[in-house]
Design a protein around this nucleic acid. Structure first.
Length: 731
RNA sequence: GGGCGGUUAGCUCAGUUGGUAGAGCGCAACAUUGACGUUGUUGAUGCCGGGGGUUCGAAUCCCUCACCGCCCACCA
């Protein structure tokens, strides 16, 4: 017997060595798998951001994906798990900028585009290497030869190809839209970069002029020089008589044309019940203006200075203009009320500047526009409605449908896929490659083509993830009879991802795949919850309550960490994880180890276990065990990983070890020869079956034990013994 | 304001189609030179959030209330 078995199980000594054996076997690559394997099983990894290191959430996702892939590989499928990392555009840029600011007190404008990109690149590469090492540590059986990065050349080509296609289909267009502008940082910022601060502010109630019939309230009188309407609720009796009327007036030296309109968005009980509509500088007013076809003049520029008016306000800061306008209102006797209120002011996370909503030229995707008899929204709806795509848990379909109408804005940042559009005067050129008569051509004298400085939001490229990782668009062209990756492995089977990104990512993958391939990207989506600490708090740096998966793997073994995390929750619900729980599964690994020692010690003369040597009562024991494995199989197929693990754990410890093995002791000592042989065979059959069934959960210790078993069941059928990872799943 | 969850043993959570409530951890007592103390045996603890309904029968289905949490929008 192997000497290692005489000591307690030592994951530190085992896991890295086992992983190396797997990698060297080549079995992570589906082409190398033994036997005839026709049916594919594909998972594409949600690419972790290259902004740092893996956390417990990644460990959960990685474990479940590996569990499924190992399960299906053992079931004889052509199992492919494609790994990758994400450039995480805004998060990465932001992280690097923060670091540089901290260490060198320089902004990105000090560095310039080139230098910043270089720095980001170095950071991203280091972060990438860390992440890959960590994935391996967890036992991830990915095909590393197919690894992808969301910002590499293959993905970039896919992005440009799709962009061009959408542009030509009229699904991508350019238009004005209000963005959150940070005048201090001179940049657009996304919703999650906004910090709300409670501040005291004055709310002013006034009329535009003496002849104007309705008073309005605002905390920002200076924006009122951009007003084009006053909106009231359609059922507001006070104002019904005015709806539809239009007024020309002069407000603090600015000529305004104000139309009275009725709109349901207006709250009758807020202020005077009438809303002065400033289309260009308020999200909601913009929407109202769109509905009522109102002009949307911009009156505040990118430096938060006034663009209109006379010397009292022109080129003044908004705050100064506000004072001037309030003074004017007072002098004209138009101000009826001044009230102090507390309001939430949006500020930029990075610079602390107050966010100024401004209209900007943006690229859009037209989700409701018809093309080839459908719309992008229809594509997203139908795939889930028709049951082609199955959500686990099912209730997320409700959330999905409820939110399908919301698409987020593009973000304009420097780190990402450049928009493949070039401008020359009024000409616009969109293609996969730059225009030939570009900046360096003979035609340059007519003026150079300039590429759009913006980059696409990360979701544009990640939306293509399932098929851009499988070779599209090259494979589509290269396909001449021989099956390629895209044909073989797409649509993928299961996506395992956090529920937080159902809209950011899942919906967009469905949309982009439907658009590009007229396929679904995956059949199943399994949503994981958030992994929290023992007290239910989110893991965070500031709380210092993080459980680092790598520390866990070092301390208790990756197997213990995997098992604990699988057992800590079901689909779509947040789970709580504590070190105690992980410790418990380290004990489990050791229990299996000790059981193996006992069985090998007591079945030394047994070569290959044989079902026909069993007594009737022992046969019954094996059948009971097989029934459990059958249940477990069904549980995994239906994504009840927790239940599957629980059943195996319970059976192994409290039936196999505590009952069957305990009872075997008497038989081995005092039983008849026949009984002895029978129990020996029984022990080995159950052990081997359990080791196989446990492999997807705790791959390292099971593989190690497998290597110590004298003869596998396969060997009895005349086949050479092979790695457990490619053994067949027990029937 | 719109939407989605949750409420089961001290704690964390399971409970697949309605059929006398489960696990882990924790707790208590006992055992033991055993494959394993990273052990075993035994045990205690539940009006399954409140109320109503359907049913022979409800933790499970329906209605309603309460509390907790999350997501999105908005805050003139």
């Amino acid at each position: 017997m192997n000497e290692k078995l005489l000591k307690p199980y030592n994951p530190q000594e085992t896991e890295d060595r086992i992983y190396k054996t797997w990698e060297e076997s080549g079995f992570f690559k589906p082409e190398n798998l033994p036997g005839e394997r026709k049916e594919p099983y594909t998972i594409v990894m949600p690419p972790p951001n290259v902004t740092g290191v893996l956390h417990m959430g990644h460990a959960l996702g990685t474990t479940l994906q590996d569990l499924l892939i190992r399960f299906e590989r053992m079931r004889g499928k052509r199992a492919l798990w494609i790994p990758g990392t994400d450039h995480a555009a805004i998060a990465t840029q932001s992280k690097v900028e923060k670091d540089i600011q901290k260490q060198e007190s320089k902004s990105r404008h000090d560095l310039g585009r080139e230098e910043l990109l270089k720095r980001i690149d170095i950071f991203a590469r280091e972060s990438h290497d860390t992440i890959i090492t960590q994935l391996k540590k967890l036992g991830a059986s990915c095909d590393w030869s197919r690894e992808a990065f969301t910002l590499d050349e293959a993905r970039s080509l896919a992005v440009r190809t799709i962009f061009k296609k959408m542009y030509e289909d009229g699904l991508i267009y350019r238009g004005h839209r209000i963005v959150n502008w940070d005048p201090k940082g001179q940049t657009t910022i996304s919703d999650d970069e906004i910090v709300y601060e409670e501040r005291k502010a004055m709310m002013y109630t006034f009329k535009y002029s003496k002849d104007f019939p309705i008073a309005i309230s605002t905390t920002r009188p200076e924006t009122k020089v951009g007003d084009t309407a006053v909106a009231v609720h359609p059922e507001d009796e006070r104002y019904k008589q005015y709806v539809g009327k239009e007024y020309d007036l002069e407000f603090a030296g600015v000529k305004l044309h104000i139309k009275i309109i009725a709109d349901k968005e207006v709250d009758k009980d807020f202020g005077t019940g009438a809303l002065g509509v400033t289309p260009a500088h308020s999200m909601i007013d913009w929407a109202i203006a769109e509905r009522h076809n109102l002009p949307k003049p911009q009156v505040i520029n990118e430096f938060a200075k006034m663009m209109v008016g006379d010397e009292r306000i022109l080129n003044k800061k908004t705050t100064e203009a506000r004072v001037a306008i309030v003074e004017w209102l007072k002098s004209e006797n138009l101000l009826t009320e001044e009230k102090e209120i507390t309001q939430n002011v949006s500020t930029a996370e990075r610079t602390g500047g107050i966010v100024e909503p401004l209209p900007k030229l943006q690229w859009f995707i037209a989700v409701n526009k018809e093309f080839r008899g459908t719309t992008l929204k229809e594509i997203m709806k139908k795939a889930v409605e028709g049951g082609q795509i199955n959500f686990v848990p099912e209730h997320f379909t409700k959330t999905y449908f409820h939110w399908i109408n919301n698409l987020n804005d593009w973000r304009q940042i420097w780190y990402g896929h450049r928009i493949p559009v070039w401008y020359r005067g009024n000409e616009v050129y969109c293609d996969i490659n730059p225009p030939e008569n570009g900046p360096h051509s003979a035609e340059a004298s007519r003026g150079a083509w300039e590429q759009d400085p913006d980059t696409l939001d990360t979701w544009f490229s990640s939306g293509l993830w399932t098929f851009s990782t499988l070779g599209w668009p090259h494979s589509a062209e290269a396909s001449r009879g021989t099956p390629n990756d895209l044909e073989t492995y797409h649509p993928t089977n299961t996506l395992i991802t956090a529920y937080e990104i159902i809209f950011f990512w899942v919906a967009r993958m469905i949309m982009m795949t439907g658009y590009a391939l007229e396929q679904i990207p995956f059949h199943n989506v399994y949503f994981t919850g958030i992994v929290r600490d023992a007290q239910g708090r989110k893991f965070s740096k500031s709380l210092g309550n993080g459980i680092d998966p790598m520390v866990i793997a070092e301390k208790y073994g990756a197997d213990a960490g995997r098992m604990a995390i699988v057992m800590s929750g079901s689909a779509g619900t947040d789970s709580k994880l504590s070190e105690d729980k992980i410790k418990g599964y380290k004990h489990f690994a050791n229990k299996i180890w000790n059981v193996t020692r006992y069985i090998l010690e007591n079945t030394k003369d047994l070569e290959t276990p044989d079902m026909s040597r069993l007594t009737e009562s022992h046969k019954k024991l094996v059948e009971d065990m097989q029934a459990i494995v059958k249940d477990v199989t069904k549980d995994i197929e239906e994504f009840r990983f927790y239940m599957a693990g629980e059943k195996l754990y319970q059976y192994f410890w409290y039936t196999f070890a505590d009952v069957i093995i305990e009872e075997s002791k008497g038989m081995l000592k005092n039983g008849s020869v026949e009984e002895k042989i029978s129990i020996q065979n029984t022990l080995r059959i159950i052990l081997e079956t359990m080791i196989k069934a446990l492999h997807p959960f705790i791959p390292f210790v099971t593989e190690e034990i497998w290597s110590m078993l004298p003869h596998s069941a396969e060997a009895s059928r005349g086949k050479p013994k092979q790695l457990l990872m490619v053994e067949s799943w027990p029937q």
